[in-house]
Nucleic acid binder design. Structure first.
Length: 567
RNA sequence: CGGGGAGUAGCGCAGUUUGGCUAGCGCGCUUGCUUCGGGAGCAAGAGGUCAUGGGUUCGAGUCCCAUCUCCCCGACCA
């Protein structure tokens, strides 16, 4: 490809709309342009990188026998009612009415559509197992699109769905995809950690996220550097550390805390540290209020609460519900004297003594509260987010909290969709059984952004060879000069005939402009051809990642390039 | 949805406080000449409903009201 025939609008200045490194570089290098918040145009150069990623994904998926298909984005809303996810998706679901007044949605994901397909066409155990996948645009009306292509409202996802006859089959399919994912990320040059994760709106029991550590990541991981343990913050299990030291119980007392209700303010008023306080959070799980006790300095994990209660939906109680359930306004709830409500407590509460808690009375708190003496807890479990003060649940060493980008997510869905939507098959005995499903997603655009996030410098992008839009860029200095042009064209043609993806910068620009652009767009190898070298009969090969330059005889060039590309 | 910031040429910005002539600068773009191994020089050009709608005024990019859009932080989320 010749630069003057191509379309690479590079930018010298940092675009004001972008904050994250990858976002800035993608705009500056002419990979993407924004249309509206959360929707991006892929320019030719960006699309080349994207296609490379897609092809790597295809190759690895196909290798393991997954079959590619293409499902519609346009979907009837009925399917979403059928699966029960219409509500779960909420405002994220983009809906509209067609001309016949029928409600349609733009697919945010495709479990419904694939299950509807499979239930019509998979009738026998003989047709199982099967894994189907697609690479397609998804639509989600995100609360807050961010970081360019990392969190957008329209994005490309590789989504795969496995159908098995039983859990053993699912385990195998799941393991296969897990391995495929490791291979894909590795080939794309990303260092990715597989972590245990919450299943969220997808449902199911087991799920792993593939995360790449990055400062601009939106997710938080608990990561142990000594044993490699990693889990998303909200489900990382916390080791129960009950202190055995007996503290003398002081006498229980009600105190005035007028208008003061947050942990911080109550603590300041009563001169008590947050870790000597207990907060009582009222949740509504499947319509029933539940009191959750968490130590003042800890954060509740809704994922853990939901899992423990085996609830379908869980949300913080509204002010009205709290008033009704505790007979007291928001901000003064406490475990003492709480009537007719299930109480579950985090392990960290166990062993606390003489702590502060709400009094279930407006403007009142209790001090010197003690468990068993002042109230009873029947259910103890792990309900909070892990912190960097906790120990690794696996090896007991320290835990680090780190930012990460979610690159992929795999789920064992089980029977959630096949039961709701009746995707069933006949087994050997002629018995109707629901398919056991798994689903597997990769954010394709995110791979591009993550690769850039991981690998860049002041000059620009440093592509890994596997997903670089071009492998080689030829930078002729003074392309107008006949001798330079002759050699540049010759090199260009010979590399191209050997199947190397090469970009020839045939612009009439100064050397500096060309070098800077080549480095900005991050092509792994630049071949610099100038009169200075030609006098000696050599051209230069410059490696983007290292900046290393070697001189080679012009006629040895293709061999040299091949050794580089192979290495 | 809550808090903060911003919208002036393709990009980056000044001008708005204190209303006043044909709305500026840098980059980029076009044409010509020169230059040519790390973002060249000179000359001549093209490009603007100053986000939108309304209002105040002799006069509005500038003041007032409303709306829209974009970005950041938070809440939420796969």
């Amino acid at each position: 490809m010749k630069w003057t025939k191509y379309f690479i609008p590079t930018l010298k200045e940092i675009p004001s709309e972008a904050e994250a490194v990858s976002h800035r570089l993608m705009i500056r290098a002419g990979l993407i342009r924004k249309l509206v918040s959360g929707a991006y145009t892929y320019l030719p150069l960006g699309l080349r990188a994207l296609k490379k990623v897609e092809n790597i994904i295809r190759e690895e998926m196909d290798k393991k026998g997954a079959l590619e298909l293409f499902l519609p984005s346009l979907q009837p809303v009925e399917l979403w009612h059928e699966s029960g996810r219409y509500k779960a998706l909420g405002e994220d679901l983009i809906k509209f009415k067609d001309r016949h007044n029928r409600v349609m949605v733009f697919g945010p994901t495709h479990e419904e559509v694939i299950t509807a397909l499979v239930r019509d066409h998979i009738r026998s155990y003989r047709q199982l197992p099967i894994t189907l996948y697609q690479i397609q645009t998804k639509f989600r009306d995100e609360v807050r699109p961010r970081f360019g292509v990392i969190r957008s409202r329209e994005f490309i996802m590789k989504d795969a769905y496995s159908f098995d006859r039983d859990n053993t089959g699912l385990d195998e399919s799941y393991k296969k995809m897990y391995e495929v994912y490791e291979a894909i990320f590795k080939r794309c040059g990303l260092k990715v950690l597989a972590v245990e994760a919450d299943t969220g709106i997808m449902g199911g029991d087991v799920s792993h996220e593939f995360m790449m550590l990055a400062e601009s990541g939106e997710d938080l991981l608990a990561h142990c550097e000594s044993c490699g343990y990693a889990a998303s913050l909200d489900i990382a299990s916390v080791k129960c550390q009950v202190s055995s030291v007996k503290v003398k119980e002081k006498s229980f007392k009600e105190v005035d805390t007028p208008g003061v209700s947050t942990i911080e303010k109550v603590g300041a008023l009563l001169k008590v540290k947050p870790e000597q306080m207990v907060k009582t959070l009222i949740y509504v799980a499947d319509g029933m209020p539940v009191a959750v006790l968490i130590r003042g300095d800890h954060e509740a994990s809704e994922a853990k609460i939901k899992k423990y209660l085996k609830a379908g939906t869980i949300e913080m109680a509204t002010e009205d519900i709290i008033k009704k359930a505790t007979e007291c306004p928001l901000g003064f709830s406490g475990p003492v004297g709480l009537k007719d409500m299930r109480i579950i407590a985090d392990n960290a509460i166990n062993g606390m003594a003489n702590f502060v808690a709400g009094a279930n009375k407006k403007d009142k708190h209790f001090i010197n509260v003690n468990i068993d003496r002042d109230f009873k807890v029947k259910e103890w479990t792990d309900l909070r987010m892990i912190t960097d003060k906790d120990k690794c649940p696996k090896c007991n060493k320290g835990i680090k909290i780190e930012h990460a980008i979610e690159m992929g997510h795999v789920f064992k869905l089980g029977l959630k969709y096949s039961k709701a939507m009746k995707a069933e098959f006949l087994d050997e005995d002629g018995k109707l059984e629901p398919c056991v499903m798994g689903c597997y997603g990769i954010g394709v655009n995110r791979i591009i952004a993550a690769a850039i996030e991981l690998s860049n410098d002041k000059k620009g992008i440093i592509w890994p060879l596997s997903i670089a839009p071009f492998q080689v860029i030829i930078v002729p200095i003074n392309y107008e000069k006949e001798d330079v042009q002759t050699v540049a064209d010759e090199v260009y043609n010979s590399l191209q005939s050997k199947g190397i993806e090469v970009l020839l910068d045939d612009r009439n620009e100064s050397a500096g402009v060309k070098f800077n652009d080549a480095e900005l767009i991050g092509i792994p190898f630049a071949i610099v051809i100038g009169q200075r070298g030609l006098k000696k009969g050599v051209v230069e090969i410059k490696e983007r990642a290292t900046g290393k330059v070697i001189e080679v005889k012009r006629h040895d060039l293709s061999d040299e390039i091949f050794t580089f590309l192979k290495a």
